[in-house]
Design a protein around this nucleic acid. Structure first.
Lengths: 225, 225
DNA sequence: ATAATATCTGACATCATGTCAGATTTCAAA
DNA sequence: TTTGAAATCTGACATGATGTCAGATATTAT
């Protein structure tokens, strides 16, 4: 009871835990944390350098010591997200063993990351619409998945595990499915239950790639890996 | 040869073909056409009332006689798109007969509309990120599909044509698949070939809903209906 | 304690927005 | 065709966000 906490609060950025903690590192982290707070509570379109810095006690112009503009800050948050997403989804791409089990694992990891960091996902995607640089960063992020998924599909096609369709358009479509279903589900309030979302994504991926016959049973034994 | 034309140029909006053509109707149409031209050639983030009106010969302030702001104009374009999309996809929702054939038809129609009107799709989605009103309009548009698809899935589940999963999360996921695959494919240059996109979407929908066994054959006999 | 350096601030120039009073154009009645 | 009321258009203004910069203040090593 005592440890109750609102379901999802932003993560925090801490400066390098070196002995010497430069002032600049601390304020940079403070600004990033203000950004996280903001993105967790308000849509990106309301973010303004003024509003952001007001919650740090620093002047508006101090912001420009650390970031070129708001989109630059968002790109930093996107980098945080990317790391976690790559870490969570690696298994299906690199792992050996039952492809369906690995795919399930990757999707579960992806859903978990987005459940925790959904607002970053949504905000960076929103922000990308108003800035060419960030849009390219986002596009490149997604493209890495398009490539990886295409490769994996083609490998499994070579093994006869997946029927012989044109892999790339399918990979692109399935990745858009993930990205925007997850943004919708976890990007902003009200936040969805993760489990039905995971089930929906898994059903689509598995029946499209490996065939619907693999869905009958398969209890959720993958929750504890 | 003489009738060759760039693969995709914006449609044009014409005033009501009444006898009396009000001046205001003509300039409203002119502004909308300027909006279409713009969205066909540049990203929405570069659209400015100045830039838009420059191409009409009217003053910047004249714009505000017809629209509250750029997002208001975009909402008008979205309405144009909605009509076409509803007209193109109706068959699977309302029609009677072979569900898979109807689904194929609806998806083909959807791909065709987006192939013609892709820039509107992309621009309105981009614009929605910076305006609450338009964001709601977009969300409502998509939600209509979520509801319709959910209903159709549940009806087919009742008939035993579709397995008994939770319909709504699936419907949401599949609609995001369509929306953002189509934005990606036709929203901006370079524009994809429609056919591989159509095939990818059809494969995902059909194998997820009705089972992958329906994909083996089925030549593209639906092209001419 | 102090000087060199790092960090921060206020003030400025720029640009897009939306409004409004008044100028200009349209159009229907005479 | 003329005319004047209504419709349409325009320039000028106030506002608010942006990014920069010179100088002020704080930090840190010695």
């Amino acid at each position: 009871m005592s440890d109750f906490k609102k379901s999802s609060s932003p993560p925090r950025v801490s400066p390098q835990p070196t002995l010497k903690v430069e002032k600049s590192e601390r304020t940079r982290a403070a600004i990033l944390n203000a950004g996280l707070e903001f993105v967790w509570s308000q849509p990106f379109r309301d973010m303004t350098v003024n509003a952001l810095m007001a919650s740090t006690g620093l002047s508006r112009s101090a912001f420009y010591q650390y970031f070129n503009d708001l989109h630059d800050l968002m790109e930093t948050l996107l980098d945080m997200l990317k790391e976690e997403v790559f870490a969570a989804t690696g298994s299906w791409f690199t792992g050996a063993g039952d492809p369906i089990a690995l795919l399930n694992e990757s999707l579960a990891g992806l859903v978990d990351v987005c459940n925790r960091l959904g607002p970053i996902l949504r905000a960076t995607n929103d922000a990308a619409a108003t800035d060419e640089r960030l849009e390219n960063a986002w596009a490149q992020f997604v493209k890495q998945f398009d490539d990886a998924v295409t490769t994996r599909i083609e490998a499994d096609q070579a093994q006869g595990l997946i029927p012989d369709f044109d892999a790339r358009p399918l990979a692109i479509a399935l990745n858009r499915l993930d990205a925007y279903t997850l943004i919708e589900a976890f990007g902003q309030h009200p936040i969805s239950q993760p489990e039905p979302v995971r089930e929906a994504l898994a059903r689509v991926w598995i029946s499209t790639l490996y065939g619907s016959e693999w869905l009958r049973d398969r209890p959720s034994d993958l929750v504890r890996n």
